[in-house]
Amino acid sequence: MTSLRRPILLCVVLLGLSTPGAASAMERVVFERDGRQQTVVGRVVVEAQDGGLLLLARDGVLWTIPPEEKVSLATDDEPFAPLSADELAKNLLAELPPGFEVHQTRNYLILHNSSRAYAVWCGSLFERLYQAFSNDWKNRGFELTEPEFPLVAVIFGDRESYLRFARAGELGDAAESILGYYSLRTNRMTMCDLTGISSLARGRRIRSATQIDQILSAPDALMTVATIVHEATHQIAYNRGMHVRLSDCPLWLAEGLAIRFETPDLSSAKGWRGIGQVNPSRLERFNEYLARRPADSLATLIAKDDRFRNPATALNAYAEAWALTYFLIRNR
C-alpha cells in the first residue's frame, strides 16, 4: 500500500468489504405496488428485522421492498446469476422508447438513439476511463473487483427526449439542470448527445469521431464532457468495489474521487493524462470560496452531506471535496 492512509483508505476498504459473494441463491419476491402485483428475481442483499427487503435483480437494479408491500419470498435451487449482455440488452430495449439500438464494448452496453458515431465515441471514451481508473488505483495498491454486470449507458439523441425520460423517472423537475446522471438504484448512466447542445455543432451532421472531438474539445464544451465523465467515474467506482450502492458512503469522498478523473484528454485515443492533476475550474471555485469560508467548513463537509444537496452551497462543496481528496492523496 502506498501513499493513501486514513481517512480515504479506511473508508474505501471498509465499503469494499460488503461486496456480495457469488454463491448466493436466486430468490423470487412477489410484492404489490401501485395497485398491481410484481415479481422480481434476484439476490436478497438485506432483510430487515421488520421483513423489508433490499433485492438486487438480475439486471443490476436494486429494489427496496417494504414489509407492507411484500407478498411472498421463495428461494430457488439455482445460484444467483446476472443476465447476460444479450439478455440485458433485450430487456432494456423493451423498456426504452422505440428507435434505440445497442452498441457493445468490452465493459459497456450502450443503448442509444443518437448517431452510431456518437455511441462509438462514447464507448471509446468510457473504456479509456475504465482502464485509467483501474490502472491508477491498482498502482496505489488497491485490489479492484470485476463488475458483476455490464456497465449500462443510455444515450438520447436530443435533449428534449432525454428530459422527458429523466423527468418521468428519478430526476423529476431537477432534470432541467442535469446533463447526465448515474443512478445508484438502476446502476445505469443516462445522458443526451452532447454534440446536440454544443453551439459549435451548428446543425452539422456528425459522421466521425474526429468531428466529435473537434466539437467537444472546444472551451465551451469541456465542462459538459467533464460532467459525463464524472458520472461515468461514479459508475466504475460503484462497480469495481470502491463504493457500495446505497451504502452510507460520504459524498465528500465519492464526489472528490470522481472529480479526480473528470477532465479527459480528448487529444489522445488511448491516454488519460489529467488523472490527479489540479482541476482548474474546481481550484478557481475553491479560491473564491476561501475568502468567506467558515471556520467549520471542513467539519460540515465531512460530517454531513447537506451542502452537496443544497443548490446554494453545492458548487463550493464539490470544490472543497476536490481540494480535500487532492490534498490527502498527495500528502498523507
Score class of each variant (00 low, 15 high):
48 A>K: 10
14 L>V: 15
313 T>S: 15
208 S>F: 08
240 R>S: 01
11 C>H: 11
173 D>F: 12
77 D>T: 13
213 D>W: 06
163 L>V: 13
320 E>T: 03
319 A>Y: 12
35 G>I: 11
77 D>W: 13
297 S>M: 12
240 R>L: 01
268 S>F: 02
13 V>N: 05
243 H>T: 07
222 L>T: 14
32 E>H: 07
158 D>E: 10
115 S>Q: 14
136 D>N: 14
32 E>P: 03
309 R>W: 09
279 N>V: 10
115 S>F: 10
17 L>G: 01
251 L>H: 01
282 R>G: 03
63 W>V: 06
110 I>N: 00
156 F>Y: 08
163 L>Q: 14
319 A>V: 15
2 T>R: 11
129 L>M: 10
61 V>Q: 10
57 A>P: 02
94 A>Q: 13
291 A>D: 08
229 V>Q: 00
31 F>L: 06
266 L>F: 04
208 S>G: 07
302 I>F: 01
29 V>W: 01
36 R>G: 04
271 G>S: 15
251 L>W: 06
202 R>L: 15
94 A>N: 12
73 L>N: 02
104 Q>P: 00
253 L>C: 02
141 G>R: 09
230 H>I: 04
175 A>C: 10
70 K>V: 11
107 N>V: 12
52 G>T: 02
80 F>K: 00
225 V>E: 02
11 C>K: 08
72 S>T: 02
85 A>K: 06
194 L>F: 13
165 F>W: 14
279 N>A: 09
51 G>Y: 06
60 G>L: 00
196 G>L: 06
291 A>V: 10
205 R>F: 07
49 Q>P: 01
294 P>L: 09
148 E>T: 09
164 R>L: 08
199 S>F: 15
218 A>S: 13
327 F>T: 12
259 I>L: 08
39 T>M: 09
305 D>V: 04
113 N>Q: 05
82 P>M: 09
82 P>Q: 01
299 A>R: 08
14 L>P: 07
242 M>D: 04
123 G>L: 01
179 L>N: 08
202 R>A: 08
210 T>Y: 14
200 L>H: 06
245 R>A: 09
54 L>S: 03
278 V>L: 11
111 L>S: 00
275 I>T: 02
272 W>L: 05
293 R>S: 06
139 N>F: 10
83 L>R: 06
67 P>W: 08
114 S>C: 08
144 L>K: 06
159 R>V: 15
201 A>T: 13
26 M>D: 03
269 A>T: 15
164 R>K: 05
53 L>F: 03
318 Y>V: 08
317 A>E: 03
293 R>K: 14
71 V>S: 09
293 R>G: 02
207 R>T: 09
184 L>K: 01
66 P>L: 13
107 N>K: 07
167 R>W: 07
111 L>Y: 00
312 A>F: 04
68 E>N: 07
113 N>D: 10
296 D>L: 14
316 N>I: 13
189 M>L: 05
232 A>L: 06
24 S>Y: 11
97 P>Q: 05
178 I>T: 10
217 S>Q: 05
128 R>E: 12
49 Q>N: 05
149 F>I: 08
60 G>S: 04
322 W>G: 00
90 K>G: 12
107 N>H: 15
243 H>F: 11
265 D>L: 02
303 A>Y: 11
84 S>H: 04
55 L>A: 02
238 Y>K: 02
186 T>Y: 07
15 L>Q: 14
220 D>M: 15
